[in-house]
Nucleic acid binder design. Structure first.
Lengths: 123, 123
DNA sequence: GAACCCTATCAATGGCGTTGTCAAGACATA
DNA sequence: TATGTCTTGACAACGCCATTGATAGGGTTC
């Protein structure tokens, strides 16, 4: 399944226009443009300058939403965290995850009923 | 360095009362109490409940001041960064440092003990 | 041509960070 | 003992930020 002959990087392929992306992350399109102005995301553009968000972009935005809404971190804090992540290899933010809320060893039980960014389970 | 024949941990020894600590970090005593209420610092107490800040406490506060004032990170962001630091070994915040300010001095060869913003050696 | 996108601007809302002050009480030191 | 600093708790003001919203004029897509 999942297209055995489709091992391509479709997670990085730009597919969603801003209205769709905004709906996916429960934010206002304006907010996504602000994130971009702040340098937190950098969606692709069509030859005619239309923003196109990839699945990776969506996940990044969901991280921002998690940090800002659930943790109360402001955009400067998000920027610092992302900067830290870039400097130290990767996956640093994951450490924020198994907080105390979830022992990730029972994930194959079935329903991922996470109380965290709802779409980050499958990173 | 650090006084001859004094191998004790005097960096962790509580010495400063709140007014002195506040002066050292250029903050209001009120602000230090807020940091404590937020769980960002935890100064020692005398048997009579007087707060006493150690050199380590001072450095931690200076980190908070650096993150909030210079980088614009809010207290929730500081908390997240500290939490991340606890989860991932140590010294994570140091990576934020060689940003652009430190391009001139690569002075010390191997003293892995100081993890302080350089803004504070004017103490 | 309708519905969407672009940039840019202005604004309202709510919340946060910091400082400040006031109170009433406990402590420290000269 | 008297003065000064500490304690907690409350209230407030100032400025800034995050988010959403609306508006304008113009381009893109179907």
């Amino acid at each position: 399944m999942t297209g055995a002959g489709r091992p391509d990087r479709d997670d990085s392929r730009p597919v969603y226009v801003i209205s769709v992306a905004a709906t996916l992350v429960s934010a206002h399109p304006r907010t996504l443009r602000i994130y971009e102005d702040e340098g937190l995301i950098c969606p692709a553009r069509t030859p005619t300058n239309i923003r196109l968000y990839s699945e990776e972009d969506i996940r990044r935005i969901l991280w921002i939403r998690h940090l800002t809404r659930d943790r109360g971190v402001n955009l400067a804090g998000v920027r610092t965290l992302f900067e830290l992540e870039e400097r130290l290899g990767k996956r640093i933010l994951e450490a924020l995850y198994d907080e105390g809320m979830r022992s990730r060893d029972a994930e194959l039980a079935g329903e991922p009923d996470v109380s965290v960014p709802h779409d980050l389970d499958h990173i």
